[in-house]
């Protein structure tokens, strides 16, 4: 609808009321916030740091894409992934010293994926996630078998309930495998975060509120049957290497535990695909 700006008699700038409410009515707002923090802390204590959120995975559900997968984590993270097999690549930029194919990854957040204002996180975050996704998947795919070709994966985050990048890694690997791309192994992603506080322990697969409050975050991608770490991205408040090493161990353990679920869903998709032709 066209808008007549001359009729709007509001101030030139506007700011969300929450900011001022927190400052002015410090009493009520702060108390509510404290309560929330206390509740979160209590929930954290009750939570087993090694507990994995229930994972639902299904491969081969999109009819138009060559391979596809949907991964959902209990608590609301939903990722939909599609993969397209080898296509002839246009002239490769940068000379193309490598003989293998190229893997092109895309990571998109749905505008309504997060809490709060629509699409607050910009293009930059998406691009960084896409780069991380590519780095996590590249070691898993046998790119040398696809010379001068390009493989495409696109991940769409429908709802962000924490550990989104990790779920996207698992979903993308599943989609690639479903598309029949030659791979060494599935890449399994797992996220961790460390709540603020000196002695806080790392939590496996944090939910969105936990992730928001966290002092440090880490996403690990593992090729379980080869026991190779294909992706690693993390940062935040500094800690000694031992603390990060412990996080990494915990994350790898989490990946190993998720692996059978993903494998099973892949098998089920293959069986479903085979069934109509035999019948």
């Amino acid at each position: 609808m066209p808008l007549d700006h001359r009729r709007l008699r509001g101030p030139e700038e506007s700011q969300p009321p929450e900011v001022w409410a927190a400052a002015a009515g410090a009493g009520g707002a702060a108390a509510a916030e404290e309560e929330e923090a206390a509740a979160a802390a209590a929930a954290e204590e009750a939570r087993d740091p090694c507990a994995l959120r229930p994972l639902f995975a299904r491969a081969g559900l999109l009819s138009q894409a060559e391979g596809s997968a949907y991964v959902e984590l209990g608590g609301g993270t939903k990722v939909l992934c599609a993969a397209w097999g080898p296509r002839e690549a246009a002239a490769e930029p940068g000379g193309g010293a490598a003989a293998g194919g190229r893997l092109v990854c895309e990571f998109r957040r749905a505008p309504f994926a997060g809490r709060g204002p629509r699409a607050a996180a910009g293009r930059e975050a998406e691009r960084e996630a896409a780069a991380a996704l590519r780095e996590a998947l590249e070691p898993a795919v046998r790119l040398a078998r696809y010379p001068r070709a390009r493989l495409a994966v696109s991940a769409l985050l429908l709802q962000d309930g924490g550990s989104a990048l990790a779920a996207a890694v698992s979903a993308a690997a599943l989609a690639l495998a479903d598309a029949g791309v030659e791979m060494y192994d599935l890449a399994v992603g797992c996220a961790l975060c460390r709540p603020p506080g000196a002695a806080a322990a790392w939590l496996l697969q944090p939910s969105e509120p936990e992730e928001r409050r966290a002092a440090a975050r880490l996403t690990v991608a593992l090729l379980p049957s080869l026991n190779q770490v294909s992706g690693l991205l993390g940062g935040g408040q500094g800690g000694p290497p031992d603390s990060w090493a412990q996080a990494l161990r915990l994350g790898l353990d989490g990946c190993h535990r998720l692996y059978p679920v993903l494998r099973q869903s892949l098998l089920r998709a293959a069986r479903r695909r085979a069934a109509p032709s035999t019948a």
Binding site: E135, P139, A140, V229, G234, G235, G238, G239, P240, P241
Partner: peptide, 19 residues
């Protein structure tokens, strides 16, 4: 203290070597 960790490149790493 470590504040950021990232793997770069096409290959993968062994967990032990990361430590």
């Amino acid at each position: 203290a470590l504040t950021c960790m990232k793997k770069v490149g096409k290959g993968s790493l062994d967990p032990e070597s990361i430590f």
